[in-house]
Design a binder for these strands. Structure first.
Lengths: 236, 236
DNA sequence: CGTCCTTTTGAACATTGTCAAACACTGTGG
DNA sequence: CCACAGTGTTTGACAATGTTCAAAAGGACG
């Protein structure tokens, strides 16, 4: 028997772009089959190749999307609250292309994929929101591809730091929100190479102390990194 | 004064997945502002950063999507008839992330972006088709990212050849449909490196004669390439 | 035939990955 | 409190991979 979600979860879900403008009834029927669960860290939520039975929403904590091939693994993205993941597989009713694991203790909602597809056909606002969201995801993957193909690993790291700095309100000092080994994988390099890359950035005014980064010469770092809105912006 | 499109163009556009199931009236109003043009080879159709005023459809010929940063250029995709490109930018009304140029003499339709967005809200079938198409595009970029991050350039080339072979009906001999320098850029390597990579694949049963590829030891090549549907399939 | 462009080749170089070991940090259990 | 194991990070030496530059070879085309 399904008991329904707590109001706090419901209102949090409702505030997501994806569900914001949709009809109350439709939101209700979407939530009917939805359940919310707490997961400990390092739990594998889905494996690539699995059938896409659910659309996932991270309510708190964080989730890593990663992929494997031939005993190699690569970190593809980090999902922070509140956002969905694995939307495209849900839409296409196709197997997941990426695996997902919790990075920390996380509260996660699972919405049955077939309900998402059904409500899509009923609710034009919801359809509009899904398309907008999906187009954003698409563009963020394209930016990532440009980052990978047009930049060296040192340039990728420099631009990553500038993006994180912007995220932290342009402070000269901020914390890496990712383990270094995971950051290395995100940037498409080995941990050893990342360690050396940090050293190389010293000459452009980057100090590193554990997870604490300080940018001592903003102009110099930017001159080297050459950030570009068509690669490094979040929202455009 | 707009004269309307020739019937042959109209029916070709209509046969696109994107427009197949939509209402006649809506298709008509979408086509009203659309015009079709023939372009010579090597014409730059759009530049990254431009406002996304049109959704493009390649009716014949071919188009390369590419990106630039810091005087470097990378080939992102090749668009073959009949398909659209730059859909996500159109949906989000955001600047293009990629530039596009014709590779050969091409016939191309331009649909005003605002009309696409307007008809999206009127026609549920069309909305559904756009989401499905966009999800497919998203997944193909994700696969490309996995290819780039999880494989060496030699492995990428080997799997590219296997994909092309499948595209050519599993023939043991087929033609590269891309200039080698362009293929190198698509695969994220230099032309020199590609040339050497072809040589290295000799030991896995790959013969190269100009643009003609023959695979003399299928099993051996596959054993090396380890193709994976979650990276190398077109449609899943 | 000469010109332009692509492709190939060679050699030097730069970057990145691998492996092994040292180091640092964390939390556990004595 | 300390010793210890476990994990993540850094370092060094080396190997593999990829790039750059220069030059030669091959094709397409006027």
């Amino acid at each position: 028997m399904h008991l329904g979600l707590p109001d706090s979860d419901l209102s949090e879900m409702r505030s997501l772009h994806l569900f914001e403008d949709m009809d109350d009834t439709h939101f209700g029927s979407l939530m009917q089959g939805t359940y919310v669960q707490n997961f400990p860290p390092q739990i594998e939520l889905i494996a690539e190749g699995d059938r896409s039975d659910f659309l996932y929403v991270v309510l708190s904590g964080s989730v890593e999307l990663f992929s494997c091939w031939n005993r190699r693994e690569s970190s593809m993205a980090t999902i922070l609250p509140v956002s969905t993941f694995i939307l495209a597989a849900t839409i296409r009713d196709a197997p997941y292309l990426m695996s997902a694991r919790t990075l920390e203790k996380s509260r996660i909602a699972l919405i049955p994929s077939q309900d998402v597809r059904a409500v899509f056909d009923l609710d034009a606002q919801f359809a509009r929101a899904i398309v907008t969201e999906l187009a954003l995801c698409y563009r963020s993957v394209v930016k990532n591809t440009k980052d990978l193909k047009l930049r060296t690993s040192l340039e990728r790291l420099a631009n990553y730091l500038l993006r994180q700095q912007r995220y932290s309100g342009m402070a000269n000092e901020f914390e890496l929100r990712l383990e270094k080994r995971r950051l290395a994988s995100v940037l498409g390099m080995t941990p050893e190479n990342l360690s050396r890359a940090f050293k190389n950035l010293k000459s452009y005014g980057v100090r590193v102390d554990g997870n604490r980064i300080s940018i001592t010469d903003q102009a110099d770092l930017e001159k080297f990194a050459k950030p570009d809105p068509l690669i490094d912006s979040y929202s455009i």
